[in-house]
Amino acid sequence: MAQTILLVEDEDGLVTYLRSELQFEDYQVLTAGTGTEALRVYAAHKDELDLIILDWMLPELDGLEVMRRIRRHDNIPIIMMTARDYVGDKVAGLDNGADDYITKPFEIEEFLARLRVIMRRKGRSHPAANNYQVGDLELDVKARRVTRGKHQAELTQREFALLRVLMQNSGEPLTRDELLDQVWGADYSGQPNIVDVYIRYLRGKIDLPAHQSIIHTVRGVGYVIEGGE
C-alpha cells in the first residue's frame, strides 16, 4: 500500500515540483498552503498519514506552532523545511519534535534519501495499531467496525474517531481540550461542549442494557474509557 505524505508549503512552484517527485516515488500526497489548513487536513486524514513535510514560514500559523500542536498527541514523523539556515532555528525545530530538518534550496536526491530513512525507522519503531480492545468492546480500524459482545455499533465517522482516541488511551483520563484537539482539530472554534454531546451519542450506542457503562466521566477533568464486561 502506498504511503501517504502531507506536504505543507505555501510556494506553489515548490508544491508542484515536490508533489510530482513524491508521486513518482509512489507516495500519495496531500497538500496544505497555510498553518490552519495543515491542521484541518491533518485532523481529517491522520489515520492514513505516514509523514508530514512542514515548511517553517507559513501564513496564519507558522510551521513550528503547527508542529507543537500536532506533537501534543501524535509522534508522526515530521521533516521541517525552511530557507532560514540558522543553527538556532534547527535546534528549535528539533527540540520541538522534528525528526529531521532540511534547508532550501536542496537537492531532491538528498531530500528523498532522508525521507526514506525516516520511513524505514517509522516502520521498525512505530507499527500502527489496527485493533483496540477494552473489556468486551472491540474496535477494528481497517474494517471501521465496533462491536460489544455480539452487538455491532453503527457509528458516524466522528463518533468512531472519538472512540478510537479514548481506546488508544484506555485507563488514562483525557480532558475535553485534548479530545477536541485530537478529534476536531487544534483550530476548532465551535462550542467545547460538542465533546459532551458526542460522548452522549457514544454511550447511547455502546452502553447496552446488558453491559455496564464503559465510558466514565472524571469530574473536573474529562472522560476515560476502562473496564466493562
Results as ranks from 00 to 15, higher is better:
residue 107 E to K: 05
residue 135 G to L: 01
residue 161 A to S: 15
residue 126 H to P: 02
residue 159 E to G: 15
residue 122 K to A: 14
residue 109 E to Q: 09
residue 149 G to K: 13
residue 142 K to F: 03
residue 131 N to V: 13
residue 147 T to P: 05
residue 111 F to C: 13
residue 127 P to R: 09
residue 154 E to V: 10
residue 125 S to L: 05
residue 110 E to Q: 01
residue 145 R to N: 14
residue 124 R to N: 06
residue 150 K to H: 13
residue 148 R to H: 13
residue 157 Q to E: 14
residue 136 D to M: 09
residue 111 F to Y: 11
residue 117 V to T: 00
residue 135 G to K: 00
residue 138 E to D: 07
residue 113 A to D: 00
residue 126 H to S: 15
residue 116 R to T: 00
residue 133 Q to D: 02
residue 114 R to M: 01
residue 143 A to F: 00
residue 121 R to C: 05
residue 158 R to A: 14
residue 157 Q to D: 14
residue 151 H to F: 08
residue 141 V to H: 11
residue 162 L to Q: 15
residue 132 Y to V: 04
residue 159 E to H: 09
residue 153 A to I: 08
residue 137 L to W: 08
residue 122 K to G: 06
residue 155 L to S: 11
residue 105 P to I: 05
residue 112 L to W: 07
residue 126 H to C: 14
residue 152 Q to R: 03
residue 146 V to D: 08
residue 148 R to K: 12
residue 137 L to F: 04
residue 148 R to C: 11
residue 144 R to Q: 13
residue 144 R to V: 12
residue 145 R to A: 14
residue 140 D to I: 04
residue 159 E to V: 12
residue 134 V to N: 01
residue 128 A to D: 14
residue 124 R to S: 10
residue 139 L to H: 07
residue 131 N to R: 09
residue 133 Q to Y: 02
residue 127 P to Y: 09
residue 151 H to S: 03
residue 140 D to W: 09
residue 121 R to V: 06
residue 125 S to C: 01
residue 118 I to A: 04
residue 160 F to W: 10
residue 156 T to P: 02
residue 127 P to W: 11
residue 133 Q to G: 02
residue 128 A to Q: 14
residue 112 L to S: 06
residue 135 G to F: 01
residue 117 V to M: 00
residue 119 M to A: 01
residue 160 F to M: 07
residue 109 E to H: 12
residue 122 K to T: 10
residue 120 R to Y: 04
